[in-house]
Design a protein around this nucleic acid. Structure first.
Lengths: 103, 103
DNA sequence: CAGGATCCGCGATGATACTG
DNA sequence: CAGTATCATCGCGGATCCTG
């Protein structure tokens, strides 16, 4: 029996982390390695800058993504999955497969 | 290269189907077989009736869940995963595992 | 028992302009 | 280049009451 009703339910905790509109998309962007902010923005043309920043910040705060800023001009900021974040890649693959199968 | 920007992106289509707050929870409830409306409600004490009905309807319209009403008094309604819906079970398992790993 | 209907707040999402 | 700030919107999710 799964503890659907409790905080111990993995599904519910997971959905709080990766259930929003863009998080899985971002994880897909980062699954093969580091990406700069501008690359992410170009990869996802229909995300607003606000949401891109916000979702990245959420992922950083959740410990799934690591952000590195270089004090240069022009600025350079890199995002990459942490070890924890890489554990989400199998989820991404399953979600992707499901979405394709569904057609 | 994945087509993040297009409608062909599996992840984005998948998130439209299973990305809302309760859909994965419901798929988890139904993954082992049929459940009656009341059983679902008791399994998820903190979902409102409105959301339960609405999310079930979404899943039925998406073809992931099948609903069977028996014209009895009192009414009996059964929900079960369709073949398409069962394809979401591996997704559920990955999400569950990720949520537990994350602790 | 299994819902439908209605009203509503708030958070999620977005558009636009501006900045170090 | 990589953000911030501000303002606006939209629908998710919930509370409550009603029905076959």
């Amino acid at each position: 029996m799964h503890l659907i009703h409790s905080e111990k339910c993995g599904v519910r905790r997971a959905m709080m982390l990766i259930g929003s509109k863009w998080k899985m998309v971002l994880i897909g962007c980062l699954k093969d390695g580091m990406q700069r902010y501008g690359e992410l923005k170009r990869s996802i043309p229909d995300i607003s800058e606000k949401m891109l920043i916000q979702e990245l910040k959420d992922l950083v705060e959740a410990g799934l993504v690591e952000k590195t800023s270089y004090p240069e001009v022009p600025p350079r900021v890199e995002y990459r999955l942490t070890e924890k974040g890489q554990k989400a890649i199998p989820v991404w693959e399953m979600v992707e497969r499901f979405g394709c199968d569904y057609l």
